[in-house]
Simulated assay, not measured.
Amino acid sequence: MPDESYTTEEIARLLKISKLTVYDLIKKGALPAYRVGKQMRVDASDLEAYKRRAKEREAGGGAASSRSGDKTIAKRGPTAAANAGRDRSAARRGAGLTADSAASEDSGLEAVRPTAGAPARPVVLTGQDPGMDLLAAHLSRAGFRALRSHKGSLDSLIDLYQGASDVVSTHLWDGDTDTYNLPYIRKLLVGAPLLAVNLLVRPAGLYVAQGNPLGLTGWSDLGRPALRIVNRERGAGARVLLDEQLRLHGLAAAGIAGYDRCVNSHMEVAAAVASGEADAGVGMAKAAELVSGIDFVPLIQERYDLVVLRTKANERLLEELLGVLGQPAFRKELGAITGCDVSRTGTVWLET
């Protein structure tokens, strides 16, 4: 069927390989793909073409083996792709991950290539701040094959719990303790040996129209009649921050216009306010600098932390991660890219 297409998850199931391998094939150009919304799609015709090429390579390799008298590889797997998938799955199992623990369909998984000749252990870094891209680049230079997954804070911690990510970022505020991240980490990763370390600190607050015509100055202003907001998706740190503030201020989400209108990034929230589609939205200061026609009302300093499981497989990863975070050059670059406070970068908040 010429119009039929598959998700990466369906491709992985059809070829009996991991999604990590599917993403790797797409990244290398071996399997043509395109994005529809947040999903990567592969046309059936392109999948069949890839399978034909794999079979041709398999047949050519088998013939060469017979001619050379090499009997050790006379019997091979169903396709070269399946063998590659098993190899990469084994590598991920060695890293404490399952065969299907690549990022989910919505993650936008992207690879950062390691230094040539270095051991290429795959490491998935999950989070949405640009600082995570910089961290991925530095870890790739240390010999890791850094893969980026873009998800909200709560989903990132769940990925870590499920073995789908190696390094995750989080900025989840707890209203009862007025602290960031640690209450959620302790609840979601109960009993797990882990390290929570700071990446950066940044201001969070409200995006408002330029000049702040409505005079919004605090969380309680969100309860004004007829005020329209735009919200973040479930699991995002900004969404959790809003929900906690509404709870503490006795404001019902159902009574706030636009609460159910959700977008997936700070930039989208800022753009909605700039276009006049909403009067306010929660986000970080950096997006307000990039989107014209809005102002930013800072309301809280949020801690953006990293969490890694302390396992035998992660010993070198932890060593390299802490080494990178401790480098003055990295901190300087991180501060320049994000515009955030990096004075506490590398500070360990929790070690279990």
Score class of each variant (00 low, 15 high):
6 Y>S: 01
6 Y>N: 06
6 Y>T: 08
14 L>G: 07
18 S>M: 09
22 V>H: 02
31 L>T: 09
31 L>N: 00
35 R>Q: 13
35 R>D: 04
42 V>L: 02
46 D>I: 10
54 A>Q: 11
57 R>C: 08
65 S>T: 12
69 G>D: 01
83 N>H: 12
84 A>P: 13
87 D>H: 14
89 S>Q: 14
99 A>I: 15
107 S>M: 07
109 L>N: 09
111 A>D: 10
112 V>Y: 02
113 R>Y: 07
117 G>K: 04
118 A>T: 14
123 V>P: 10
125 L>V: 08
130 P>A: 00
131 G>A: 01
135 L>E: 00
136 A>C: 06
137 A>R: 05
139 L>S: 00
144 F>D: 00
144 F>H: 04
152 G>A: 00
156 S>K: 06
161 Y>T: 09
162 Q>D: 15
164 A>D: 15
175 G>L: 13
175 G>W: 00
178 D>F: 13
178 D>E: 09
182 L>Y: 09
183 P>I: 05
188 L>Y: 14
188 L>T: 08
193 P>N: 04
193 P>G: 02
196 A>G: 05
203 P>T: 10
204 A>S: 08
204 A>G: 12
205 G>A: 04
209 A>D: 07
211 G>Q: 04
213 P>I: 05
215 G>K: 03
222 L>W: 03
227 L>Q: 02
229 I>T: 09
232 R>S: 11
236 A>F: 07
240 V>E: 15
240 V>T: 09
241 L>Q: 02
241 L>D: 04
245 Q>N: 09
245 Q>H: 12
247 R>V: 13
248 L>G: 11
257 A>Y: 07
258 G>R: 00
266 H>A: 09
268 E>W: 07
275 S>G: 05
276 G>P: 00
277 E>W: 06
285 A>L: 14
288 A>G: 07
293 G>A: 01
294 I>N: 00
295 D>L: 04
297 V>P: 03
297 V>I: 08
298 P>Q: 02
298 P>G: 03
300 I>M: 07
301 Q>W: 08
301 Q>A: 13
306 L>H: 06
312 K>H: 11
315 E>A: 14
316 R>L: 12
316 R>N: 08
317 L>C: 05
318 L>F: 13
321 L>H: 03
321 L>S: 03
326 G>F: 06
328 P>R: 06
328 P>D: 00
331 R>H: 07
335 G>S: 02
335 G>M: 04
335 G>C: 04
349 W>L: 15
350 L>P: 07
